[in-house]
Design a protein around this nucleic acid. Structure first.
Length: 257
DNA sequence: ATGGCCATCATGGATGGA
């Protein structure tokens, strides 16, 4: 079983690329972030034509998350950690035997800004929400665009990013609390090397120069970790005409025992 | 060179992203 997370940076602007990729890669589940459209603007038919069921949690212009799955989708939760938040940044479903939480964590803009305070509050709320909704003994995948580099090895220039947004200690502490709660950063379970990135700035030919950040993650509970065979980042999808600035990141699982 | 690009809404240029 394969589950992909991909910040598509506008599902409407990216539709041909997303659909072509999905048709070729055919993961069991695709978790998307940054739809930048309302629910009724989401091109559900294009996914359904490929045999996927879809659950969408969008909003006008910004943010928005969706899950496409070849398996039946049930138990849809819209609005994490707070159902009343006007920003659509989190949803959860049950599909393929997993509780999948798909997140678009706030960017935070700048350390010390109002948006930064919202980001930290949002991450605090996420941990509370998880603790109320489920437990680390369940079959859980928390995936998406976390907008956090967990460690310096996830950053192309740690000195330049020191205590900057994405890399600040309070953000990393929130990430670490998710790990302490009982989740494992699936990629780091297999590979502790530097230079592994999932996002590259559109500006200054950062992708061509190999300068990026690792901010898209698959966090798995112990039972899911036991089945995890690897994590793949599809850098090919960052090349060519009109790419997203994020690459798709795929979690590969064996069968449940 | 302390910026570079890209999407949205709207139809110019502000706002947001990371």
């Amino acid at each position: 079983m394969r589950i992909t997370t991909w910040n598509v940076n506008s599902v409407r602007a990216r539709l041909p690329r997303v659909i072509d990729w999905l048709d070729a890669a055919r993961p069991d589940v695709l978790c998307m972030q940054e739809l930048k459209c309302r629910d009724e603007q989401f091109p559900a038919e294009a996914f359904e034509d490929l045999g996927y069921n879809v659950a969408v949690f969008g909003q006008k212009s910004w943010n928005g998350v969706a899950i496409a799955s070849q398996h039946p989708i049930s138990g849809i939760i819209r609005g994490i950690p707070d159902a009343d938040d006007p920003q659509s940044r989190g949803m959860a479903v049950v599909t393929g035997g997993l509780f999948i939480v798909n997140l678009y964590v706030p960017n935070g803009s700048e350390v010390g800004s109002d948006k930064y305070a919202y980001k930290l509050q949002w991450l605090d709320g996420l941990l509370d929400w998880l603790s109320n909704e489920t437990g680390p003994d369940d079959d859980i995948l928390v995936t998406g665009d976390f907008n956090i580099c967990p460690a310096d090895r996830d950053v192309y220039d740690p000195a330049a990013w020191h205590e900057k947004i994405i890399c600040s200690t309070p953000e990393r502490e929130r990430f670490e609390r998710l790990i302490e709660w009982g989740l494992t950063d699936a990629l780091r379970h297999f590979d502790d090397s530097e230079g592994i990135y999932t996002w590259w700035d559109y500006r200054a030919a950062m992708f061509r120069r190999g300068l990026g950040l690792r901010i898209d993650h698959h966090l798995v509970s112990a039972s899911v970790l036991q089945r995890t065979q690897g994590v793949e980042i599809d850098r090919e999808a960052r090349k060519g005409e009109k790419p997203s600035d994020h690459a798709p990141v795929t979690l590969i699982l064996g069968d449940a025992s």
